[in-house]
Computed example of a mutant assay.
Amino acid sequence: MKCYLCKYIPPRADFLATMTAEERDWMKQHGAFLDELLEQGLIVAHGPVADPNGGYGVSLYRIADDQNIEAITSNDPIVRNGAGHYEHHPMPHLRTRD
């Protein structure tokens, strides 16, 4: 298994406060996408981070060795629609409570 901290970087620092109606729809799809990955067991946890310098999202992934994290996150509806991108940070060890 491989583990990653994935940081969703929105297209602008005030994104959460200034989303257009279209972007709000994409964000709903984004949440549903992540919830589905959580149900599948690919994500351990996910949620928004209220950083005073600009909010962002964090997801902790635990995926099979033959899976590609970039391929997974590139299917996120918010990313597919060009509203932000992900940073992928490998985690050599992720301990969770099962």
Rank of each mutant, 00 (worst) to 15 (best):
E36C: 01
A32Y: 07
K28N: 14
L37T: 01
P48L: 07
G57M: 02
Y56S: 06
E70Q: 15
H46G: 00
G84W: 01
V58F: 06
D65K: 14
R80P: 00
L38S: 11
L38E: 11
L37P: 01
H85T: 14
N75K: 14
A71C: 01
S59T: 05
P48E: 09
E36F: 07
L42W: 10
D51Y: 07
K28Q: 13
I78G: 08
G41V: 03
G31T: 06
L60A: 13
V58K: 05
E87K: 07
P52I: 02
T73F: 02
A64R: 14
G55D: 12
E36P: 00
L42D: 09
L34M: 13
N81H: 10
G31K: 12
F33K: 07
L37R: 09
H88A: 05
V44H: 12
Y56H: 14
Y61E: 00
H85E: 13
R62M: 13
K28C: 07
N68T: 07
N68Y: 05
I72T: 09
I69Y: 04
D65N: 04
A71I: 04
R80E: 05
I78K: 01
R24G: 06
N68D: 15
L60D: 01
R24F: 06
T73R: 00
D76C: 05
Q29A: 15
G47K: 05
L42V: 09
I43Q: 10
G82A: 11
E39C: 10
Q67E: 09
A83V: 11
A83H: 13
H88R: 04
G31A: 08
A83T: 12
N75S: 15
A64K: 11
F33R: 03
R24Q: 15
I69R: 00
L37I: 04
N75F: 08
H89L: 15
W26T: 06
I69H: 02
I72N: 04
D66C: 00
V58Q: 04
L60T: 07
K28L: 13
R62N: 07
E70D: 15
V58C: 05
H30N: 09
H88V: 04
P77G: 01
R24M: 11
L34T: 00
E36D: 09
Y61M: 06
L37V: 00
R62D: 08
L34K: 12
L38Q: 09
H88I: 02
L37A: 07
D65F: 05
M27H: 10
L60V: 14
P48A: 12
P52W: 03
E70H: 14
D65S: 08
W26K: 13
K28E: 13
G31R: 12
A50L: 11
N81L: 05
Q40S: 06
H85A: 12
W26C: 14
L42N: 13
Q29F: 03
G82M: 11
L38M: 12
V58W: 00
D35F: 10
N53S: 10
N81K: 12
E70C: 08
E36Q: 15
D76I: 01
V58I: 15
L34F: 15
G31H: 10
D25H: 08
Y86L: 11
M27D: 09
Y56W: 09
